[in-house]
Amino acid sequence: MTQHWTNVQFGAQNTDSAIAVVDGIIAGNSPVMQQVKQHIALVGASVAPVLVQGETGTGKELVAEALHAVSGRTGELVAVNCAAIPAELLESELFGHEKGAFTGAEGRKIGRFEQACGGTLFLDEIGDMPPALQVKLLRVLETRKIRRLGSMQEIDVDFRLVTATHRDLTSQEEVQFREDLYFRVAVFQIGLPSLAKRVTDIPLILDRMIKGYKANDVTFDEPLFDETGMRALQSHTWRGNIRELRNTLIRASVMFPGQVVTGDMVKHFLLNAGMPYIDGCAPQSDAVMPETHDLPSPDQFRYLNDAEGQDLDLRVYLRDIEVALIETALEKTSYCVSRAATQLRLRRTTLIEKMKKYGLNREVA
């Protein structure tokens, strides 16, 4: 089980600089996450194995990345998901093989143990490792030597081992895991809390996610969760943890790009993965989209197509409508851009960009 540490300054490794490195990788300032970060900073420089435990989607791979970042090791962080690779292929993936070692081995392959030399080997979901391979991993940890499949030559390996699991490795009812291997990989244990236990971190996590998306896609127009929207996110149970939160942000960016997202929108269209309209029909829930403020019905525009000899430049017409709506919102709010953006369900920066585009700039609040 996860060991609970008291708030004590244990050693010189637990420095502000190390925690700053961890902060750059893992978002969150809740008390429970501050403790996790202190643990990472403390054991990061050690070569001792670390077992990271937490529910699926809590970010165990980020802990491995942070441990490697503060370790000072010059090699790579090499990650292997033991649950994602078939059992018959996992041994070759870890140990590597020589040409002709088995059918289909057309050349030499360097395994993950060797790739991680001088660095960190991260074995995710180690609880899914087959029992026969657990024995071989135990021998590697004891001797620090491996042999590629099909070879008689032993190779020295130097890696720092970090493992992770969402299972209780000490429960034989839940998983078949060797007790002697458990004590080898669990020299230090770091427990990750579920997202439901750190909901105050959600704004920071979302901000980190959004920055990542914008760094990879300059056209990414993020949604802006207002106070009610953020409260709705923080009151959710988050069974899928951070992974579920990421999915929710993706849905919001597709359905409400550049818009203010309210609590009702979060509850009815984001958390249940519902859609505002399906096959042209209104949703069955009692949720409503943002108020239309008595805007004309689409049917009132049909006369445009009924007039003989009259063509419609749709882009120009829609531009004029957008300009009129923006000007109206600005006038009603005495040119307070923030309030006008809220009325239009836009982010403040998005409204400012549109004002510049249409030449609507003036003294604004």
Rank of each mutant, 00 (worst) to 15 (best):
F95R: 00
N247P: 07
T163A: 14
V78S: 03
M1N: 12
H39D: 12
F269P: 00
G24F: 01
E322W: 03
S171L: 13
A41V: 09
G229F: 08
D294I: 11
A341V: 05
I205Q: 01
Y358R: 05
I110K: 12
D156V: 08
E227Q: 13
A69Y: 00
G274M: 08
D128A: 10
N241M: 03
E154V: 02
H268E: 14
S194A: 13
F95M: 04
L204C: 02
N305L: 15
L204E: 15
V140K: 00
S285Q: 10
G44Y: 01
Q284E: 13
G118L: 07
E353W: 06
R231P: 00
E98C: 06
L67I: 03
L314V: 15
A18M: 10
D311E: 09
P49C: 10
V52W: 00
E76C: 01
G111L: 08
E174I: 11
G107F: 05
I205W: 00
V199L: 02
A20W: 03
S46D: 14
L169A: 06
W5C: 04
K99R: 15
M209N: 03
A340L: 03
H39G: 11
E65V: 01
A196C: 13
Q35C: 07
E179V: 11
A287H: 03
R319S: 15
G100W: 06
E114A: 13
K60L: 06
N241T: 07
A340W: 02
K214F: 04
